[in-house]
Design a protein around this nucleic acid. Structure first.
Length: 373
RNA sequence: GGAGAGGUACCCAAGUUGGCCAAAGGGGGCAGACUGUAAAUCUGUUGUCUCAGACUUCACUGGUUCGAAUCCAGUCCUCUCCA
């Protein structure tokens, strides 16, 4: 098996799990937050910095790397790990999210999806088979089945058709798979309809994929609705396989996701808001770009052990951001990723120590609302 | 000394057949958004007030006119060229 999962401990009070994802590029303790490096780089971070932060696995993207520089070039480079000098885990998203985010530029059919390139308008056809070919050329440890991340809100009938097609696409991906050293995860869809979530899961689970993702969430719906969908989905997923909640990455969502049995998360939010002048703290967001921090000589977050907080002040970082200096984006990105990666490690420890419910209560009181610090 | 060009809001800069001008557009400032990255992006806002409405602004002073950033006269200042 390319990638296996070991369940280390499960919180008896909640559904929280501590485990290990074993990959050809090292073990990944779970629950885990995976930084996103869409174009074969986590924007502004070097691989060395990512390791320093504690990242054990990162994301990259099929659609984007297919367009540029082209998967054949990555293959010629020796695969994504070699190409980008990252010897730890990599997961590639299938392009399913681009079916959603490039909504105006694509057309969905049973056979696959026609995209008009957002670079030059050229037309490209991605099918489950093509996506598998690309992902095998890229060579990530975990690869994703081609799916449709459906929009919210969406009609029940639309979601029903979409989820069924996503299942058929997952089967086609499975059939097209040739490499045996990559784990192909299927993606549960179903929109915001609990019964359709269950329908999707019940179609995919018997196909026995090495891991399952929950997709189509965090697309604009209220938080409570997302939690409800998780509760409808996760209990149907096999306990001995990793569960991955796609596109989720605020501290409160992470905590709530873990509580409901999720093992893996990814999100562009920490890196994106970092570049837009906002940092994540244990107590909420801090928009360090704003005026009040102009002469604030404290670190971004007191007691944070990250490189940024050990060496730089809010005033300096605000200055860098305001002057559009690259180093500013690097410092905020570093901090945000550090916070999430370490938050997950802390959660994992608490699950193993049996104190997760306490940690949950503590953070539940602090999170869930945005607050300037 | 002579010839010419010009002075518009925090900065740059449109606007000079008089009204539709509190005044385009940039930049800067101040906020907001961001969740499997079309994102170092996008959106809002940026004269004053008791903000619907009213008031004071386009170098300065005076004038023409129902009405002036726009027309006239004078003053101050800036730049270019020629001596």
């Amino acid at each position: 098996m390319a990638v296996t999962y070991t369940l280390v401990k499960e919180c008896p009070e909640t559904g929280a799990r501590a485990g290990v994802l074993h990959t050809p590029h090292g073990d990944v303790p779970t629950p885990v937050f995976m930084p996103v490096g869409t174009q074969a780089t986590v924007k502004t971070m070097s691989p060395e910095e990512l390791k320093e932060i504690g990242a054990k696995i990162i994301l990259s993207n099929t659609y984007h790397l297919y367009l540029r520089p082209g998967h054949e070039l990555v293959r010629a480079a020796g695969g994504l790990h070699t190409f980008m000098n990252w010897d730890r885990g990599i997961l590639t998203d299938s392009g399913g999210f681009q079916v959603f985010s490039l909504g105006a530029l694509r057309k969905i059919k049973e056979e696959g999806v026609t995209f008009r390139s957002h670079h030059d308008g050229s037309e490209h056809f991605l099918s489950p088979e093509k996506v598998m070919e690309i992902q095998e050329a890229l060579g990530a440890d975990v690869i994703m089945a081609f799916d449709e991340c459906a929009p919210y809100p969406a009609e029940r009938e639309y979601i029903k058709d979409s989820l069924a097609r996503t299942t058929r696409w997952a089967e086609r991906c499975r059939k097209a798979q040739q490499r045996t050293d990559q784990a192909l995860f299927a993606i549960v869809q179903g929109g915001m309809y609990p019964d359709l979530r269950r329908e999707s899961a019940s179609q995919l689970v018997p196909l026995d994929f090495p891991g399952y993702a929950v997709g189509g969430l965090s697309v604009g719906e209220p938080a409570e609705l997302m939690y409800e969908m998780l509760e409808a989905t996760v209990p149907l997923l096999p306990k001995n396989k990793p569960r991955y909640l796609m596109g989720v990455g605020t501290t409160d969502y992470l905590l709530e996701g873990v509580k409901r049995g999720i093992d893996m998360f990814d999100c562009v939010l920490p890196t994106r808001i970092a570049r837009n002048g906002t940092v994540i703290t244990r107590d909420g967001y801090l928009t360090v770009r704003n005026r009040p921090y102009a002469d604030d000589f404290r670190p971004l977050e007191e007691h944070c052990g990250c490189y940024t907080c050990r060496n730089y002040t809010r005033a300096y970082i605000r200055h860098l951001i305001k002057t559009n200096e690259i180093f500013g984006f690097r410092l905020t990105t570093y901090h945000n990723l550090y916070v999430l990666v370490h938050f997950m490690a802390e959660i994992r420890d608490s699950i193993i120590n049996g104190t997760f419910p306490d940690l949950y209560k503590e953070f539940h009181a602090r999170l869930g609302h945005k607050k300037e610090v």
